[in-house]
Design a protein around this nucleic acid. Structure first.
Lengths: 192, 192
DNA sequence: TGAATAAAGTTTCGATGCGAAACTTTGAGT
DNA sequence: ACTCAAAGTTTCGCATCGAAACTTTATTCA
């Protein structure tokens, strides 16, 4: 019981520091933390997940709020919006070079990256596993989407070295697509 | 290298989920995440750390912004402000019963507490240690205050079962004070 | 086929966050 | 006594944020 309270405090501090550093980084570009979150997401999501609705789920905000944040990024020249050819209700978002640069420079924040690179791979491996199970636990409890990498999804079927099959969309896709975030990402099993 | 990227992603998700749940919890009281952070802090800080300036450092915001957030909490009846008798520039903040209740109910967020109670103490022990070292690493790198518990401070000298001595203020204090957050908290050593 | 319904996004409203900078009051140092 | 620093407050301008009303386009189902 004692550990749990301490861990809550630690995560609270990490969460606040994380956000403060992101805020500081965005300030020089006139951006708020939520904008950097959007740039970060668009820089890593796959082609099924680049819509305002997906961004809304990622942020956990309302669609009205998300719409305005995206509009701001568009007017600042960091994001481009393009209408879907088949479903005219849908828009696809992509980063401009300037937007991609800001995302790459600031997300994740420098101090976090620096702190982690000071650790060896064997040191961080158990941490990764524990954070993973904690995250899965919270996501299922709050029934929020997992936004995991495509290749870790239950619908991802490896075919060979250069391609895989997505059981959800029924498409053959090149392997490097598997490294991207998918809004439809589904956990392989709830209890393992 | 691979683990580090993944851990960054995991912390990003945890951070966002954390904040979203806090936002949701605060919404029913008309409070923003930052207000719950303040209530959380005031509920756990010691008597040297209950000032607007300390809250400012905890939040990592400017003093103007912090001042307005505190004023709002005051008008809503969750916080009381009282001028220091010796230094009239300083004000001391305390929670009303309503404020204390909201803090206790919502911080840390329910899903996080629930996820952690599903784990045994032996499971979470290594996680705690790793998060601690990660946090210390980031705090020293960004030269931000640690806001740790009094009893983990280098100036905390245990005397007996009911009291300790604070080398910083030169005061004898009851043991239970050691469980509170201190703005002057100083890490015992940087490399151990 | 046609009407109801749902889904994706936008717009408007009002309260507030947020940084920056100017300001007041009070204490500390020389 | 004079200067400087520290703690807080106030004002300004822009943006977030949720809620709710709205438009446009798809889908469902009768």
């Amino acid at each position: 019981m004692k550990n749990n309270d301490d861990i809550c405090d630690l995560l609270e501090r990490l969460s606040t520091l994380f956000r403060n550093e992101v805020r500081q980084a965005g300030l020089v570009h006139g951006l708020h933390p939520v904008h950097l979150e959007v740039l970060f997401y668009l820089n890593k999501c796959n082609k099924f997940s680049d819509t305002p609705a997906a961004v809304k789920d990622f942020l956990g905000a309302t669609k009205g709020t998300t719409s305005k944040s995206i509009t701001l990024l568009e007017t600042k020249g960091y994001v481009v919006k393009k209408q879907d050819t088949k479903d005219k209700r849908v828009y696809h978002l992509s980063l401009t070079e300037a937007g991609r640069q800001i995302a790459a420079d600031n997300m994740p924040p420098m101090s976090l990256r620096a702190a982690l690179t000071r650790c060896s791979d064997s040191e961080t491996s158990p941490l990764k596993q524990q954070l993973e199970s904690l995250l899965v636990d919270i996501q299922t409890a709050t029934s929020s989407l997992s936004f995991g990498l495509c290749k870790t999804c239950r619908f991802h079927l490896a075919k060979n070295n250069t391609a895989f099959f997505c059981e959800l969309t029924g498409e053959d896709l090149p392997s490097q697509y598997g490294e991207l975030i998918c809004r439809e990402h589904t956990l392989k099993s709830l209890c393992e």
